[in-house]
């Protein structure tokens, strides 16, 4: 039981940490100064969520691992984040599409998780829900502008949506861990979110004059530690200090 809750919390923590890591790469390189600051805010929200979730995962595990040991000292195959969040930033359209897909899922996800029987997860969810609402608004408004902007921006935004679409299936995957925790009233059954998620994306894409791809073949593997090639590079960068200087305080 403990191990299910640990795995579940850790996956959520990994999602947040890895997306925060990717978004942080933008700082100083965004299309406008305003957006440099905006994207950094989104990154900071995710890093904050990751800290809370890792800390709780460590507590649940009871082996004395803290947030940093969980984030910086696990190996590639031990990470359970979905593949979507680890996808490279690409151009601004890809970053926005990744955020739109993810936030459109996480907003109803966190809202439902506030009703979890696990009080800590419910409390984390209550804070994260508000953050996700803004992330969705931010990425949605940009999707509309890029989709309905110039011919170039429209092509780039559509490409980004097509490119990342196959990574959305994983958001809805249910394995034994999720199944058991749903039965216990702790986890969210992602199937209960699908309609809202799809409706949100449809609304944004309609406004943006973009086409949402049909549900077809989907990527999978992140939850069981099979990641993209780029993920190892992300980890080697993110974990560099803890690996190069083991056991030191910072």
């Amino acid at each position: 039981m403990t191990s299910d809750l640990f795995t579940y919390t850790l996956r959520l923590a990994d999602d947040a940490a890895i997306l925060g890591q990717r978004l942080g790469e933008w700082c100083g390189h965004a299309p406008t100064l305003e957006e440099d600051i905006g994207l950094a805010n989104v990154a900071l929200d995710h890093i904050g969520q990751a800290r809370n979730l890792y800390s709780y995962a460590g507590e649940v595990e009871g082996a004395g691992r803290d947030e940093d040991q969980l984030c910086f000292l696990r190996k590639e195959r031990e990470f359970g984040n979905c593949l979507l969040v680890e996808q490279p930033n690409g151009d601004f359209a890809q970053t926005i599409a990744r955020q739109l897909f993810f936030s459109a899922f996480m907003l109803p996800f966190w809202r439902k998780l506030t009703g979890s029987r696990d009080e800590t997860l419910a409390a984390i969810a209550a804070k994260a829900e508000k953050e996700a609402a803004y992330h969705l608004r931010h990425s949605g408004e940009w999707t509309i502008r890029l989709g309905d902007g110039t011919a170039e921006s429209r092509a780039r935004m559509q490409d980004a949506i097509d490119l990342l679409w196959p990574y959305t299936g994983e958001l809805f995957e249910v394995d034994g861990v999720v199944e058991r925790l749903v039965a216990d009233g702790i986890a969210v059954d992602p199937e209960t979110i699908r309609d809202e998620w799809h409706a949100t994306l449809r609304r944004v894409c309609d406004d943006a004059t973009l086409t949402l791809p049909p549900v077809g073949w989907m990527q999978s593997g992140g939850r069981s530690g099979r990641h993209s090639e780029s993920f190892g590079h992300l980890l080697s960068e993110m974990q560099y200090m803890q690996r190069a200087y083991p056991g030191m305080r910072w």
Binding site: A17, G20, Q21, G24, E25, C27, G28, H29, L33, D36, I37, A40, N41, A43, L44, I47, G48, A50, R51, Y54, E67, D68, C71, F72, E237, M238, Y240, M241, Q242, Y245, W250
Partner: peptide, 30 residues
Amino acid sequence: GMLPEGNWISRAPTLKRKAALLAKVQDEGG
């Protein structure tokens, strides 16, 4: 000035330091 410090956001040794550095570099943009 965002660039030299931005160079370490992705490699900050702890999550607390990562958040503080990112917030600081962001402030500089502000």
